[in-house]
Design a protein around this nucleic acid. Structure first.
Lengths: 214, 214
DNA sequence: GTCTATAGGTGGATAGAC
DNA sequence: GTCTATCCACCTATAGAC
C-alpha cells in the first residue's frame, strides 16, 4: 500500500476518534508508518488532507444513491418506501460491510465533528458533497407526497437525516445503551426498521398550525 | 458576574464553535476577561471545566422533562403524543429562548463534539446525565405501545433522539439548507411538526423480519 | 519520494508574589 | 482570588541532504 493510502487510512481513524484539532499530523504519520513530512508532501496541508479523507468515502456512496434513484425513476414513479431505501441503504450497507465498515463509521464520526463546528471551511466543503443528493431526493419525495407542504417535507427530511446520522455515529454504543436488545450489525434489519418508521412519519397528517404560525 | 460564571459562559461558546481540543484555556480566559490561571484555580483542569459546562445546562432541562412526565403520569396513562412532547419540548423551548437560546445551541453542538468522539471520558460522563431520562421515557413509551417489541421501541427512540439532536445541532444552517422555507426559530411550530412525525413512526407496523433475523 | 533537523509557535499547568 | 513569569511538551510547516 502506498504512503498516501496509509496516511488516508490512519487519518480517517484518528480524525474520527479524536477530532481534527485533537489529531496531530505527527500522530497520523506515526500511525501510518510514514515520515513526518509526508502529509505536507502528499496533501499540501492538514486541511486538504481532511478534504481528501471525506471525498474518498462519500463520493462512491452518493453516486450509488443517485444511480439507485435513477433506476427507480426509469421504471415509473417510485414508492415512498423505495425512495427512502435508495437514500438509506447505500450508507448503511457500507457502514456494516466487514471490510469497509469501519471506514464509514469513521466518516460518520468525522461528519459529526465537522457539523458540530458551526463556522469551519471544512463544513462548507462537506455540505457541497451533498448538494445534488438533497435536491434529487427532496424532488422525488415531493412528487410522491404532493399534498405535503414544502416546509413540512423539508422538516421531515431533516428528521430522517438526523435519525440516520445519529444511528451511524453512535453505532458502537447502541449495544450498551439498549442492553444488547438492538444489534447495529444487522443492517438489513435496521433498514427494515428505519424505512417504515420514516415512511409513516412522512405520511403523518400535519398538526394544526405546524410551521405556519401566520 | 463572577469570574467563574464568565469562564463558564466563554467556555460554552468556544467549545461549541471550535470543539474541545480546538479551544485553548488561553482563549477561554481571554474571552472571559479573566486571568490565564483562573481556569485551573476554579475548576482544577480543562476537563473538569467541560463537565461543569455540560452540567449547568443539562441538569435543569432533564429535571423539567422528568417533572413533566411525573405530572402526566399522576393523572393516568399519558398519550403517545404527550410523552413525546414531555421529552422534546423542554430542550427545544430553551433552545429557542431569546435569553438562554444560544446557550443550548452551544450545548447541542458540544454534545455533537462529545458523541462524535468514541472513546472519551467526557462522553461517558455525559451519557450518565441521561440515564434516568432514557429509563423513564422508554418505560412510559412501552406502556403506551405494549404490542411493540422492546428492540423496535428502542430503535425508534434512538431515531427520535437523532432527529431532535440533529435539528438542534444544525439549527443555524436550516434556513440556508431549506432556502428559508423552514424557520428554526418557530419552536412551537417545530414541536407540532416533530411530535406527529415521531408518533406516526412509533405507531408504524413492523416490517417482516425487522431486527429479528433469526 | 523520503529522510533529518529545526524553526517558530502554542498548548496546559504551576509556582510564588501580592 | 488574582496576577506574572515560566516550564516544558507538543504542534505545523519547511529547508535541504539523500
Amino acid at each position: 500500500m502506498s504512503t498516501k493510502e496509509r496516511i488516508l487510512d490512519a487519518a480517517e481513524r484518528l480524525f474520527a476518534e479524536q477530532g481534527f484539532a485533537g489529531t496531530s499530523t505527527r500522530a497520523i504519520t506515526t500511525a501510518a508508518d510514514a515520515n513526518l513530512a509526508a502529509v505536507n508532501y502528499h496533501f499540501g496541508s492538514k486541511e486538504s488532507l481532511i478534504d481528501a479523507v471525506f471525498t474518498r468515502r462519500l463520493e462512491p456512496i452518493n453516486r450509488q444513491r443517485l444511480e439507485w434513484l435513477d433506476r427507480l425513476e426509469a421504471t415509473g414513479q417510485p414508492s415512498l418506501e423505495e425512495i427512502l431505501e435508495a437514500f438509506l441503504a447505500p450508507p448503511l450497507r457500507v457502514h456494516q460491510d466487514p471490510v469497509e465498515g469501519k471506514s464509514l463509521l469513521h466518516v460518520a464520526q468525522m461528519i459529526g465533528h465537522a457539523t458540530s463546528r458551526p463556522d469551519s471551511r471544512i463544513k462548507d466543503r462537506l455540505i457541497q458533497q451533498f448538494d445534488t443528493i438533497i435536491e434529487r431526493f427532496t424532488a422525488a419525495l415531493a412528487r410522491q407526497l404532493p399534498e405535503l407542504e414544502p416546509a413540512q417535507l423539508l422538516w421531515r427530511f431533516l428528521f430522517l437525516i438526523g435519525s440516520m446520522a445519529h444511528t451511524m455515529a453512535i453505532s458502537q454504543d447502541i449495544k450498551r445503551f439498549t442492553r444488547g436488545l438492538c444489534d447495529p450489525h444487522d443492517v438489513e434489519g435496521l433498514i427494515r426498521t428505519m424505512v417504515p418508521y420514516a415512511a409513516a412519519g412522512f405520511r403523518a397528517p400535519v398538526a394544526a398550525g405546524s410551521g405556519h404560525p401566520k
